[in-house]
């Protein structure tokens, strides 16, 4: 039994998601990511089940564990009640905890995801906040969102929301005492530590690449090598 495997087994999701894989490939057949990326969840579960640390380390430092969309379609169909999606979540957590995520193009996108999503949670109390969802970065949201962004307060008022207002309602301002509780939860449960380690690894990587933080973020947001894709 390998050290990395032992670390993975500390994660409740791995204990729940890996029973006894029979390598039937049903997960890969149903997986939306396997159709788009060069991705095979069957192989990943097989590697973890092998308990081979060198192969697990290769997974933790590579791109493939970041291809999954966590839709969990695999969980429904697995005839042995495994959860390849849960195994992926455990692998990703360990990759981040060990700093390995920064070594792959897809893994280092965590820098931006952590910055944006954790920022939204701590600053606003929401994972997604419309003032941070700009049309320029999301042109697929269409001209209707371009219009809505320009008139956000008016549109939200028209739709019966309470944008940044006091009291209950859609998109209300989350009271400061509640945001303070979220911050304390982040501090005590390891989220703050994870944010800081991801930020530090990202800073070092940007320096190594000779990029400013802004240039690094743009690269992370837009870069996508065709080598990830099926049929390339």
């Amino acid at each position: 039994m390998g050290k990395l495997y032992d670390m993975l087994m500390q994660d409740y999701r791995l204990r729940e998601g890996l029973n006894a894989c029979i390598n039937c490939g049903t997960c890969t057949a149903v997986c939306p990511a396997a159709e788009f990326y060069r991705y095979d969840p069957r192989r990943i579960v097989d590697v973890v089940q092998s308990q081979d640390d060198s192969k697990i380390e290769e997974l933790l430092k590579g791109d493939v564990i970041w291809y999954c969309g966590e839709c969990m379609s695999c969980v429904t169909r697995c005839p042995r009640k495994n959860g390849p999606g849960l195994v992926i979540m455990a692998l990703r957590s360990l990759s981040i905890d060990l700093g390995y995520f920064i070594e792959s193009e897809k893994g280092r996108q965590q820098y931006l995801l952590s910055k944006d999503l954790c920022g939204n949670v701590l600053n606003y109390g929401y994972c997604v906040y419309p003032r941070e969802f700009d049309y320029k970065s999301h042109p697929e949201a269409g001209p209707v969102w371009e219009w809505e962004e320009k008139h956000l307060e008016d549109v939200f008022e028209r739709l019966g929301a309470n944008l940044d207002g006091d009291g209950p309602g859609a998109m209300r301002k989350i009271p400061d005492e509640d945001l303070a509780q979220l911050k304390r939860i982040f501090d005590i449960t390891g989220a703050t530590k994870r944010m800081e380690s991801v930020r530090e690894a990202g800073r070092k990587k940007a320096e190594e690449l000779g990029l400013t933080e802004e240039e690094f973020c743009t690269l992370l947001y837009e870069q996508s090598s065709p080598r990830h894709l099926n049929g390339q």
Binding site: N120, G125, I185
Partner: peptide, 27 residues
């Protein structure tokens, strides 16, 4: 009933692997 004191559950941050399972469970 709704109270203004509820927040995000943190699910999107969790499934984007930015926060640990223990964090989302505490939220």
């Amino acid at each position: 009933f709704e109270t203004e004191h509820h927040t995000t559950c943190g699910g999107i941050a969790y499934h984007s692997d930015t926060i640990p399972q223990e964090t989302v469970m505490t939220i």
